[in-house]
Amino acid sequence: MVGFKNRYMVMEVFLDPNRDIKGDDSVIITPFNLMKAIKDSILPNFGECFLASSLGSMQVKYVNPITKICIIRVSKENHQKVWSAITMVRKIGNCPAFFNLLDLSGSIRACRVAALKCDEKKFEHYKLMAGDRLSTDDSQRMQNYLEKIKLLEN
């Protein structure tokens, strides 16, 4: 008997790529609006049946609005289709956005390692972008998010 298998996708979100680089984001990403955007993409592309069958295991495990990194769990059978549906996402809420896959792993442990690495690197990048606008508050929040990744389970 083979156990049920998941795939964990570490993705980054590019919010409003057309706008000039140094602006604040018009949307704060949360698990809910990400999930909604993905569902809205699956429904017209792959239909209600596929949406229903994929919903069982699909979950947004983690979202970091600072670095815009999220972890999405999908069942192994559906992950390619869900992934392509995510690729076809063009909007989150009313804001143009698109996803980019950073890592695809088969267990939460591997995913944690990859996500930690990506998150830290993206935060370095964020610090460079923000420059002196970076507050100590941000670093503190970032620490909390990194802790959250370490505590992720299944």
């Binding site: 390619q80 992934w83 392509s84 690729t87 076809m88 698109f98 996803f99 980019n100 896959l101």
Partner: peptide, 10 residues
């Protein structure tokens, strides 16, 4: 525009 792996998968 999309990332290379996303394009390949899509």
């Amino acid at each position: 525009i999309r990332g290379p792996y996303d394009v390949a998968n899509l």
